[in-house]
């Protein structure tokens, strides 16, 4: 269902929106994001642009002064798409290239996070070497399911955040909890603009000062919580029941890895948008942050009932 949005100024037909974008080109920020465009549109365009009928906007456009090239002006408005006149502005309404589950648990030394490397295009397993677990701060990993382009954008925000810490060089760096709080705000803000970042995020890390492990997850609408084990997507249904039975905060690295591999295997068996190519990331107080090279898991297809499907029952399996 499309939520209803505040519509344009009644006088402003959808076709005029492109002029609004040009108008603001002199003042818009260098880097455009979708948010500013819609926000400015009503404010800027009423006075000069609104033709009574909403039609033929180009005839009433004032001559454009020469302005330096502005990337912000490159943003077309949603209103110049094929949407019928008066239709509400649409933002992301569904994801295109998607990642599936991210799994993460706390253990004795810190946290361990796992995901496969697939970027699926619908049901097509299209991009098979996508990093969905990335370093966000010196001792913080962020993992993401959902729209990959949005995650690439989020990764860029996190890189900028971290670069700022490096540049200031004052010894202050973001802790996992702070990265989590930041992402909560980003996700919640975007959903309030009805333009969500289509991701489920997992934030995991260790507070360098105290050695305390942190694990949290945040959904595309800003719902978030922290726990000793978290998962996104299918992982919520397939992995977390295993975690509830077997995860302990004091488990060893070997035990933690075995548990994650078990959960990954189940997810791989039952999630059609998954591939047998995984990475595992760890953050520990002792040895910092690591993300493994991609690896695959052994799978089991030798069950008697699999080999002889009609042995125990007639009819099809």
């Amino acid at each position: 269902m499309q939520p209803s949005l505040p519509s344009h100024h009644p006088l402003l037909g959808p076709d005029t929106a492109i002029l609004a974008a040009q108008q603001q080109s002199a003042s818009a920020s260098f880097f455009h994001n979708q948010r500013t465009n819609t926000a400015h549109q009503d404010a800027n365009s009423n006075a000069v642009l609104a033709p009574a009928s909403g039609a033929m906007p180009f005839t009433v456009a004032p001559p454009q002064a020469h302005a330096p090239f502005d990337a912000g002006a490159l943003a077309f408005d949603a209103a110049i798409t094929n949407a019928p006149p008066g239709a509400p502005n649409k933002h992301t309404t569904y994801p295109y290239v998607t990642g599936t589950s991210v799994l993460a648990i706390k253990y004795k030394d810190g946290i361990m996070m796992a995901a496969d490397t697939l970027g699926a295009y619908g049901a097509t397993k299209r991009y098979k070497s996508i990093s969905r677990i990335v370093p966000a701060a010196p001792t913080t990993l962020v993992g993401a399911g959902g729209e990959i382009s949005d995650f690439q954008y989020i990764s860029k925000l996190l890189t900028e955040l971290n670069d700022n810490d490096v540049i200031r060089d004052d010894g202050v760096v973001l802790k996992p909890r702070e990265v989590f709080a930041y992402l909560q705000r980003v996700m919640y803000n975007r959903r309030n603009k009805f333009d969500p970042l289509w991701n489920s995020l997992v934030v995991g890390g260790v507070d360098q000062a105290t050695g305390e492990a942190f694990l949290g997850t945040c959904s595309m609408i800003g719902v978030s919580y922290t726990d000793s084990h978290v998962a996104t997507g299918f992982g919520n249904h397939l992995a977390r029941p295993l975690f509830r039975n077997e995860q302990r905060d004091d488990m060893t690295e070997q035990e933690a890895r075995a548990l994650l591999e078990k959960a990954l295997r189940v997810c791989y068996y039952r999630d059609k948008n998954s591939i047998n190519k995984f990475v595992i990331g760890t953050v520990t107080k002792e040895s910092g942050m690591k993300v493994s090279e991609p690896f695959s898991l052994s799978t089991e297809w030798g069950y008697d009932a699999f080999v002889h499907p009609t042995k125990h029952a007639l009819g099809s399996w």
């Binding site: 260098f30 880097f31 860029k156 900028e160």
Partner: peptide
């Protein structure tokens, strides 16, 4: 300068 660098890198 920091702002310029960040904008450039972002775009």
């Amino acid at each position: 300068a920091r702002g310029e660098c960040q904008n450039y890198k972002h775009f």
